[in-house]
């Protein structure tokens, strides 16, 4: 898995998405290089989650396109994973949840148990391996969802508000896990409404407002010197709609 040619960079050109004539995203264009962590920011309803789903291929754009530019692009979907705001836990044990993801990616059964153990270990969930996933706490479920996503060694990992409904301690554990996944060289595209989290994790910021891309800049520049009026207001903590 590790030696597969890269699927990145990710190129998004003129991307638009509309439902029932309502334009939710329009004219989004950007490029994302490998091994970067991009945080998608913006007020509620800006289209952050939508952008992630379009990039991941869960939704088809109404205009424009998402394309993977790397040598491994023809198998791009097999080298991405996504974690959702509310973790979707299958009704089986924590370990079986990871085993399931590995089996879908065609990992042979004899390799799955060691990879599963490794992923659980990484998320600090080894002791809970046999526990039914759905009785775990919210934070544990989200770490399991991350471990499951990471177990297939994705080149690109999409995270949709992974800490939105967690308390600070659980948020910290999840952020640490994200940090480790990032340190492996995984490209991460993540939404959050937590500016502090964005400062802690981001290499780049993709700032959306009302379905449009307002800014895409290095994180340091975005926070110290936002270019657009909207971004300035957003960083300053003003209410933006």
């Amino acid at each position: 898995m590790a030696t597969f040619p890269p699927i990145t960079p990710l190129s998004v050109e003129g991307l638009a998405f509309a439902v029932d004539g309502k334009q939710l995203l329009s004219e989004i264009s950007f490029t994302l290089e490998a091994h970067r962590t991009a945080l998608v920011l913006g007020p509620n309803g800006a289209g952050k989650s939508l952008l992630l789903r379009l990039c991941h291929g869960l939704l088809q754009p109404t205009a424009g396109r998402v394309s993977w530019q790397g040598a491994g692009a023809d198998q791009a979907s097999a080298h991405q994973a996504m974690v959702f705001q509310r973790p979707v836990m299958l009704r089986r044990s924590a370990a079986a949840n990871i085993d399931y993801a590995l089996s879908l990616r065609g990992v042979p059964a004899r390799q799955r148990s060691s990879l599963t153990a490794e992923a659980l270990e990484r998320a600090g969930l080894s002791a809970l391996a046999k526990r039914p996933a759905r009785v775990l706490s919210g934070g544990e479920q989200q770490r399991l969802a991350l471990a499951r996503a990471w177990s297939v060694r994705p080149q690109v990992l999409f995270l949709d508000e992974p800490t939105a409904s967690l308390d600070p301690a659980a948020t910290r554990a999840v952020e640490e896990l994200i940090g480790r996944i990032r340190a492996d060289g995984t490209t991460i595209v993540m939404t959050t409404h937590d500016l502090g989290q964005a400062r802690r994790l981001a290499d780049e910021i993709i700032f959306l407002h009302r379905g449009r891309l307002v800014e895409k800049t290095a994180a340091a520049d975005f926070f110290s010197n936002p270019q657009s009026q909207e971004a300035r207001a957003f960083v300053a903590g003003e209410l933006l709609w």
Partner: peptide
């Protein structure tokens, strides 16, 4: 309704 996105993301 609950599983669709996750299963499609996992490649089912």
């Amino acid at each position: 309704a609950e599983y669709e996105e996750q299963l499609r993301s996992l490649g089912a």
